[in-house]
């Protein structure tokens, strides 16, 4: 039973790191602390097991949930003309001035910037991620697609103009639901 609990704890710890969703990681950590408290019990340390049960199951769960509430992501999808996104291309595109400006913008809005390279067009992206923007680069001109109800879109436009990003080289396209 001791070996089984230890194996289960290791499995839960690995899963909590590997999972893509934060909320699942909270549940994995709950199960991890549960089995760890059983392990402490089997090692004849019931006082430690009691403390682990109190801290691990209740306090740290609530703490992680409050932390998750504070963690918000601003998602930009990035589509370039190349049909194939190579690693070199990815490295190169990280350095463009627009990406640097977007990093500054998201830092100002207290959001975490996330850039996803994609081949999809705006309707498919808007269906899955209603708050995301799409950047489209073609022949030196950048188009930024966003939903008009997104309150960040006007702030983004003001920010780009204020930071001296050349106004001729980008357009902001507000896509309504009915047009799609």
């Amino acid at each position: 039973m001791l070996t089984g609990s230890l194996l289960f704890s290791v499995m839960m710890a690995v899963l909590a790191i590997q999972t893509r969703k934060m909320r699942n990681a909270v549940i994995y950590l709950c199960a991890f602390s549960l089995s760890m408290s059983l392990v402490y019990l089997l090692y004849h340390a019931p006082d430690v097991a009691l403390a682990e049960a109190v801290i691990g199951s209740a306090i740290s769960t609530i703490l992680y949930l409050v932390a998750l509430q504070k963690y918000k992501i601003l998602t930009f999808f990035y589509r370039s003309e190349d049909t194939e996104v190579r690693d070199e291309h990815y490295q190169e595109s990280r350095k463009t001035p627009l990406i640097k400006l977007l990093e500054k913008f998201s830092a100002k809005q207290e959001l975490e910037l996330q850039i996803i390279h994609t081949l999809d067009h705006y309707p498919e992206i808007n269906e899955k991620h209603p708050n995301a923007f799409l950047l489209e680069e073609a022949e030196g001109h950048t188009r930024i697609y966003g939903h008009p109800e997104n309150n960040l879109i006007d702030a983004l436009e003001d920010f780009l103009i204020k930071e001296g990003f050349p106004k001729a080289s980008f357009t902001i396209v507000k896509v309504e639901d009915t047009v799609l």
């Binding site: 909320r23 709950c30 199951s57 998750l68």
Partner: peptide, 15 residues
């Protein structure tokens, strides 16, 4: 454990 585990599960589903 039974009291606090209940609180934890309730908080996750509430969240």
């Amino acid at each position: 454990y039974s009291l606090l585990g209940f609180v934890g599960v309730i908080f996750i589903s509430w969240f």
